[in-house]
Structures are given as C-alpha cells and as structure tokens.
Design a protein around this nucleic acid. Sequence first.
DNA 1: CTAAAGCCTATAGAATTAGTAGATTAATAA
DNA 2: TTATTAATCTACTAATTCTATAGGCTTTAG
Lengths: 137, 137
Amino acid sequence: MLSKKTKYGIKALTYLARQENKTPVSIATISESENISLKFLESILLTLRKNGLLGSKKGKGGGYYLLKESNEIQMTAVMRILEGPISMIPCVSLNFYEKCDDCPDENACAVHKLMAQVRDSSLEIFRNTTLAELCNC
Amino acid sequence: MLSKKTKYGIKALTYLARQENKTPVSIATISESENISLKFLESILLTLRKNGLLGSKKGKGGGYYLLKESNEIQMTAVMRILEGPISMIPCVSLNFYEKCDDCPDENACAVHKLMAQVRDSSLEIFRNTTLAELCNC
DNA sequence: CTAAAGCCTATAGAATTAGTAGATTAATAA
DNA sequence: TTATTAATCTACTAATTCTATAGGCTTTAG
C-alpha cells in the first residue's frame, strides 16, 4: 500500500510544479487546494526539503518551491524519499539491501525471483516518469 | 512492503509444487524445511485452503497439497489472497476499487496516473508467472 | 484407543501510520 | 519597533496492522 504521506507528497509536488514562476507557496495554500491536513503536510514538505527536492522561505510571503525544473525530478527520487525502498522486499533492494534471515540461498528463492522482476518493472516506470509528465493531467 | 505472510505463503506453495506426487505434506515438515514459525504457517495455509488453492487431509499422514497443477496457478491469485490488492492505492484497483476522499477528479490526479502504470506492469508479471516457473530456481 | 495432524478462536506485543499540539525562529511590512 | 505571517522542531497519541503464540477441538490411521 502507498502511504498517505507519499500520496500527499506527490500531490504537493505536482502543485508546486504547476506554478508559473518560482515564488514560494505556503503550506496553507497547498493544504487547502489539495485537501490535506495542514500539520501532516507540514511534516511531509519538511522531509522533501531536507532531502533536497524543495527550497523554503520563512516569514511573510514565504513558503516552498521546487529546487529543480519539474522535468528533472524523477519519480524514483520522490518515491525513495517518501515511501522508502522501491522493492517490496529488502533482499532485492538496490539501495536498501538486507539479507533474509530464513533464506539459505537467495538465488534459489521463489520470492526473490518474483520480486526482482517486480522491482525492475517499477523502477523503469519511476525512472522514466518525471514530475513534469504527471502535471499534464 | 511484502508481508511475511505472503512471503511464507509463496515459499510454502513452491515447496508443495516441488513434490513429485500429490501426497499431503504436514505443516511441520514445511515449517522446518523453510524456517517458518509453525503456528504462523498454520494460519497461512488455512487461508490458502479456504481460498481454494490448497486441499487438506486431517489425521495421521495428513497435511496439505495443491488442488491444481502448479503451472495453472497464477501469481495474481496468490498475491490477491495473501497480500490483498495488486494496486498500491485503492483508486486504481480493479478488484478492490475505492474512491479517494480528497480527490475531486481521478483523471486529473498525478498519483492515480502514476499508480495505474505500476499496477499494469505488476499485473502483467503476476499474470504471466505461475507457481511452476518459480520452482525452477 | 492413541498418536498424529489439521481446525478454530482468542489474545498480545511490536511496529507503523496518520495525524495533533504547542512552542520557537525567521522574515516582512507598517 | 512591533505585529503578522509562515516555516521549524519536538513530542505525543490513537488507531491499525503485523507477526506471531496459546490452547482446546476434531478427524483419521493403525
């Protein structure tokens, strides 16, 4: 299941990507437009800023803005920051690899084999999709 | 994330699929071979039986066995029984559809667009993979 | 009859999710 | 300078899900 955190994060990012100029947008504005709890959104945007996707400006007229062009932001980055690993299981993860306790041989494991395929196909989609493409809805 | 329930379930199913004949295999045997907690596995096999994938025999010499040939068991069925929806979000689910509260228009939603692609690719993999193929590891 | 094995219900600890609350800091405008 | 706006940060909590565990019941083979 996709967490609400990721869902809201993607919505907020596309909202920012749809802005003509790079002037900051306040959390409250995004929260109202996208029907997201203000305080929850606050923490989501903070993680996106700490991970280098967003910039922020405090005080009056402040808010959040994209640090890169929307066509330069791959969904792999967004997903890894908000949702964590792309893989459904750590033993096939490229960035978050972990061995399974119960599994004596990964190469002989049915789950490993299946989930590696799923990871590959998901990865391809997230890599080939940028924020810009998701805005043209 | 893939639940341990699903992981163990797939392992148990492939174990059964690797049997030469259709004589029942006890939970204890599978539990020991695959390093799965006996009682947890018990509940998993029970759900698989209740959902028509496994048959069982009680009493001495009893156990579980596949009801169909392993090449006739698609991973879509296994995943839906053990893990639930293939989709990462209910608004793109074919079998478990649900509207999002916050979303005024699905067709204009970035999350919907992205997750529909992921669902399609995962679905294709699960549909084109049978238990039989996962045994040849 | 007895041992083996599945069936069924209930429970419980841990982890994760989805928020809330409230105080603090920084920037801007009057 | 002061008031206002808006992000920052820490801490907490309620609900849900996950990963089991416990224990009694029922069925079957020998």
